[in-house]
Design a binder for these strands. Structure first.
Lengths: 151, 151
DNA sequence: GCTGAAACTCATTACGT
DNA sequence: ACGTAATGAGTTTCAGC
C-alpha cells in the first residue's frame, strides 16, 4: 500500500501527543523543514492513515460524571436485524460509541450520564427498550489511560 | 463549575465533527465574530472541558488489522496490587487503552495487532503473563461508530 | 462582551535541487 | 523527497465601543 518509513512513524507519535502541534515544530523534531513535514502529514491523510482530528473532551467537567460500558447481546428469538438495532442505538443521545464485536457480546456501547440516577433512567427507558436487545452487562468507568500504541 | 450556555454546547458539537475547523467558521455558524468564538474556545479549555486535540488514526491502514477488547479480572489470590498490574500493562506496545472499571471485570483493554496470529502472540506472551491476571474475555472489533454524544 | 484592525504564526503553493 | 522563498489563511492580541 504505501510504505511508511520510520520518519512517518515518529511523526505520527509526535502528533498523537498533541494533534494541534504545528508542522514547523514537527519538522524541527524530525530534522526536516516545515513544508517537508507538512507534505508527509498530507500524504498520511491521503492514504487514509490519518482520518482527522478529534476533540478530547472531559465529560466530567461538562457535567457527565458517569461513564458506563455496556456489553449487549441481541435476542436469539425474533432475529431483529442489525441495522434496526444500530439505527435505534445511534439515536440515543447518551451513547458515545457503538462497537460491533464478535465474541461473548454482539455490541459494546459507551454511555455517559450526569450521575447514576440519570444512568438508570437511560438504561431503563432507552437501552432496555431497544429492538432485539438481549442480555446486557455493565462496567462503570473508574479511570482511563490512553497509551501511544504500537504505531 | 462554570455555566456552559447553549452556544457553548453548539460550539463543542461543531468542533467535535472536525477539531481543525477554524474559529472564523465556528463564529459564522454561531452568529458570532471570529474573536468572540475564539474566546469561548479558550474559556472552554481553561475550565478543563476541552483537554486537547487527538489524532483519529486508522489502525487498519497502518497495518494493524485486528482490534480486540479484553475484559480482565484480576486473580483473587496473591492480591498483586493494581499499580503493579497497570505499570506492566502500560508497557505493552500493542495496548492502546487501559480502563479501570467496576463490574464483572476489573480492567478493560483495547489491543491492536497486525493479524490474528500476531494477536495470539501478544495474548500468550504479553497479556497472559501479566502480574495478578485472572480470567480474560475477548471481543474482536468488527466495526465502530462514534456519535456526537449528549454534549 | 462585542467589533475591527494589527501583528504574528501557520498552512499551502511555487520553484529549484 | 527535500529546501528556500513567497503567499494566503488563521490565530492571537489590543484598542475602542
Amino acid at each position: 500500500m504505501s510504505a511508511l518509513d520510520d520518519t512517518d512513524r515518529r511523526l505520527l507519535r509526535l502528533l498523537q501527543e498533541d494533534a494541534a502541534r504545528p508542522a514547523s515544530e514537527i519538522g524541527r523534531e524530525l530534522g526536516l523543514s516545515q513544508p517537508a513535514a507538512w507534505r508527509r502529514i498530507r500524504r498520511l491523510r491521503e492514504i487514509g492513515a490519518l482520518k482527522g482530528r478529534r476533540l478530547d473532551l472531559d465529560a466530567a467537567a461538562l457535567g457527565f460524571g458517569v461513564t458506563v460500558f455496556l456489553g449487549v447481546k441481541l435476542a436469539r428469538t425474533g432475529r431483529a436485524n442489525l441495522e434496526d438495532f444500530e439505527r435505534a442505538v445511534s439515536a440515543i443521545r447518551e451513547v458515545q460509541t457503538v462497537e460491533h464485536v464478535l465474541g461473548l457480546y454482539d455490541y459494546r456501547l459507551r454511555v455517559v450520564a450526569r450521575d447514576l440516577a440519570d444512568f438508570e433512567r437511560v438504561l431503563r427507558r432507552r437501552i432496555m427498550t431497544l429492538p432485539g436487545i438481549g442480555p446486557v452487562e455493565a462496567n462503570v468507568l473508574l479511570s482511563e489511560e490512553r497509551l501511544p500504541g504500537p504505531i
